[in-house]
Amino acid sequence: MAPGSSRPRSRASTLVALLATATLLITGCSAQNNSLAEQANAGDNKNYIAGDGSVAEYAPGTRSEPVDVMGELYDGTTVDSSQWVGDVVVLNVWYAACAPCRVEAPMLQTLSSSFAPEGVRFYGINVRDEKSTAEAFERNFGITYPSFVDRDGKLLLSLTSYVPPQAVPTTLVLDRQGRVSARILGVADESTLKTLIADALAEDGPAAPPNPSTTAGTDDAS
């Protein structure tokens, strides 16, 4: 079985193809994965998965179904997402000892106050803290919007069907129909979040948009 002249060439090209495929498979990972891998390798015991600050805005046609979630606030009130129809809602996942959450807390409070006249609802989703710890955080940062207690992760579980929150903090913007219109993984930038909320406000609601004109002038993020 003397080697034929054509066979080794085809073998060599097979080798090249294999190596190329392998390289592609090995290097074909996304930015979020790189951030995840970096965090995994950091070994800093920070005990949360941080976001890389990536922002995803979903065009109306590509959005998920309206979010259908229910949860309990720290004050004991039960809140159902059906109560949100017609309003833009901002959901922020946090807990007190999470360093990036502490960074963005003042900004969230500012935005929640400034968008209050337009009926934008802000809710925190606290994934770890007991009531008094959460209240200490709210007192410390002067947070006035309420937070869901989600220590068992039930609210998060139902949210994963729409857009999974993939980091602490994660900020979600829901449009007037309750669909996720934007997601920020990691510390939210004030002007970015402001724009995202303003964009959602500018859209029409499901049936009769409550205040279609009030959004004008809010989209001033540079």
Binding site: A37, Q39, I49, V93, L156
Partner: peptide, 14 residues
């Protein structure tokens, strides 16, 4: 969900 983990190591194409 990623948010629930203390630490997490993804596969390369995860």
């Amino acid at each position: 969900a990623l948010i629930g983990y203390d630490s997490f190591s993804p596969g390369t194409n995860f």
